[in-house]
Design a protein around this nucleic acid. Structure first.
Lengths: 258, 258
DNA sequence: GGCCCTAACAACGA
DNA sequence: CTCGTTGTTAGGGC
């Protein structure tokens, strides 16, 4: 459920709180989706000092001084806690003990969270890093695909999930079923601008209203992908339809390029 | 266009006419879809003696004494000629000169015929060789696929083409869109019997009415996949619809297991 | 209409 | 709602 803006919020918060602190204890509660042995992870991270925390697509990267990165993907329902006592946290996957009696906890009621120690570098750009040229050429190379499936494809650009894809397409005035190869340059440019604007403004909004949140989602402020609304900001009715195998919100403001 | 019964007819005819005769000349007119060099084919087949001709799925296998097999797939429009003078045959792909001033010619106006010298053995059974157990287990393993696509899949059973698939399904009283996993044992058995009956009776019919044909097709006697007919043998209207990406004829006699 | 390759899509499980 | 994997399908080229 957490999407790029939520994850950026988590990352910013964790970065502020963890930087320069040291891991004093490593406890793996569920190792099924950990790519190394519990022993290797514990040995590598014990006494490691946090260098920084960054978001990469839908993953959170924990950087340590002179150690490999620990990558966390929260999947559908995973989240973090920074807490003085982890004994009451349910569905724990990983606990990293810190100084001053504090714990960083990764938990997930579905146990789908993936932990990857020393992940391979990925060349696919983050949604906030793409250039207009990149977007244009990628759209051209997927002529028959619909734009919604395109935006959700983490092999093309990383970080956009179901809700923000709908927001981006509404801001671009592009119908989610439009074919990638049919978008005229103006529409491609609108999409490009919308990716940057919608996502960065959402991060800013979340930083303002709930800077300390480390799990869950908050999407009441979304303009289209929002079950509380019936009308788009321009007053057009909002429709719901399964597109790209996901429930999709869109309005008649959006042009269908086919 | 030629399907299993046509190909069986060709094979039978060629077997009768070629057995024990010797290749005196090898001329490759188009080598694009030949898996060995022209030189290798010529060297191997010159002076080779035909042992037998067999149909395998939609392929014709020419067996020679102490030589590898030459496999011919006629694709959509390929055909054979056994003729005293090959100079008037259009679209020639391969000519094998024989004794007594006769030539075996493979031709194809589309140049799609494939020639494979020494083909790898294939484990997929011919449609006329399958057992009821095999059909049952294969159907069970393709639960969500429709039966028409199943019958046409040469990786499951070999030899059935678009026209005879429709005939087999009508004889089985199974709608072409029925899901493989939904067929009850009685329907599976009906399908099994129909595969054998429809195909062998078609071979017998063709052997009776045109035993010497070596190319093209003849399907006026088909009961369902036949543009000349509007009604099935039981008097039900015949419908046409694209199923499994192929134009499909079927009637309301056929039950849709879904 | 035949077959292969590829891209797009759908279903399932983790 | 996420990401693999797998199997099926649709389209173009030979």
């Amino acid at each position: 459920m957490p999407e790029l803006p939520d994850l950026q919020l988590f990352s910013n918060h964790l970065h502020r709180r963890l930087q320069q602190r040291t891991v004093s204890q490593v406890t793996v509660h569920k190792s099924k989706r950990l790519n190394v042995t519990v022993e290797v992870l514990a040995e590598q991270l014990i006494h490691a000092k946090f260098a920084m925390v960054k978001r990469k697509g839908k993953c959170i990267h924990f950087h340590f001084v002179n150690k490999p990165i620990l990558e966390v993907h929260l999947m559908l329902k995973g989240g973090f806690d920074l807490i003085a006592d982890d004994s009451q946290v349910p569905y724990k996957i990983l606990t990293l003990g810190l100084d001053e009696q504090e714990y960083l906890v990764v938990s997930d009621p579905q146990s789908l969270v993936t932990l990857t120690f020393d992940p391979l570098p990925i060349s696919v750009p983050d949604a906030l890093d793409i250039t207009l040229d990149y977007l244009t050429s990628q759209l051209q190379s997927k002529k028959t695909r619909n734009i919604k499936a395109f935006l959700l494809d983490q092999h093309i650009l990383r970080g956009i999930g179901n809700a923000y894809a709908d927001e981006i397409l509404w801001y671009s005035r592009i119908s989610p079923e439009s074919l990638c190869g049919r978008l005229p340059p103006d529409a491609v440019n609108a999409c490009f601008q919308a990716i940057k604007t919608v996502l960065t403004e959402a991060v800013q909004h979340l930083e303002t209203v709930q800077p300390d949140r480390l799990k869950g989602e908050y999407r009441d402020f979304l303009k289209i992908h929002n079950p509380q609304k019936n009308l788009s900001p321009t007053g057009k009715p909002i429709h719901q339809k399964k597109i790209a195998n996901k429930i999709t919100f869109y309005s008649d403001d959006q042009y269908y390029y086919k």
